[in-house]
Structure formats: structure tokens, C-alpha cells
Amino acid sequence: MSQEERVLRLSRELTGQWTLPILLALEGNGGRFTPLQNKLNIAPSRLSANLKKMVEDGLLLHLSPSERRHPLLPEYVLTEKGRLHREAARAVQLSEERIGHGRLSDKMWGMPILLTLNFNHTRFQEIRQLLDGITPRILSLRLQQFHDDGLVCKHISEEPRPSFLYQLEKQVQHPVQQLSIDLASLV
């Protein structure tokens, strides 16, 4: 797998409404359920489902009551992979701040699409092939949203046959490029 593909995979693993906020809300080595819930203002069942998924994905360990040596110590502990993902989450958060259009990683495929454009893949089919699993509908929707928000420009290429080319708008290029460098340093 190329570094480009690894960067895209890492960015995919951070998309979704809650993964990134949960990672950023955890303390140095992990956290307890109640402070997390209050910090994130999230429904207990939703937090529970997200934590379970993160445990399944190998980002967190869920300690049993007998494994915890003190009631104040974390119930969820970051794994090595989890710590790496938290570093990546910080990089994503920083890039979102630099881009200045709110959260982009909360929408499925948002960041991976921007990174794909950063890697100079500009045609719809090319982007789709690189982002394994994305549906044409979602890709089309996200590109349209990014275009409407002024993050992506599109123009028609006549050769080899007429089709749209998608590119990052000038002011977005640097933050996304910096994100790709930051993520590349972690994979």
C-alpha cells in the first residue's frame, strides 16, 4: 500500500460525527464514561455505541471493573493505534480550523475527498477508484457541497473527452497539503 493510500485510509478512519471529538476529549491515557459524556454533551447510548466501535477497531481498551485499580482511573484506555489516531485527529482539527468552514470530518468521506484532490486526482472516476467503497452518489453530493462552500472548484476539460475536473480552491490548498504531510508522518 502506498503512503498516499495509507494517508487516505487514516483520514477515512477519522470521519464520522463522533470519532474525532471522542479522541480529542480523552485525557492522556484514556478516560471515564461520565466526564466524556458531559464534555461532549452526547446521549449515553450514542457514546456507548461509539466507544464500542472504537474498541472493536482497536483504538481503545475497555477495562472491566476488576481491571481498574482505582475508581478515578480510566475505564477506556487508548491503545498505541488509538494514540496515533488521536495525533491524527489533532491534525485534522487543526486543518479544519485553518480552512475555517467548521467541521468537515463529521461527514463521511469529507476529508478523504479533499486529500484525494490534494494528491492531484481530479476526475470523478479517478477519485472514486481511489476511495474504495465510496458510492457515486455520496461522492457527487460531497463534491457539490464543497463546491457550494467555495472549497472546491470545477471546470470542464475537453480532452480526452469532456468531463469535469475538480480541484481545491487556492485558500484550501495549503491547509489540506499540511494535513496530508501531518498524516503521512503518522503512517
Partner: peptide
């Protein structure tokens, strides 16, 4: 005595 809320309590 200190108390800390936990998801699972034994």
C-alpha cells in the same frame, strides 16, 4: 469516602 461514576459497577 470518594465516589466516581462508572459504566459498570461491581
Amino acid at each position: 469516602i470518594g465516589f466516581s461514576v462508572a459504566e459498570a459497577v461491581e
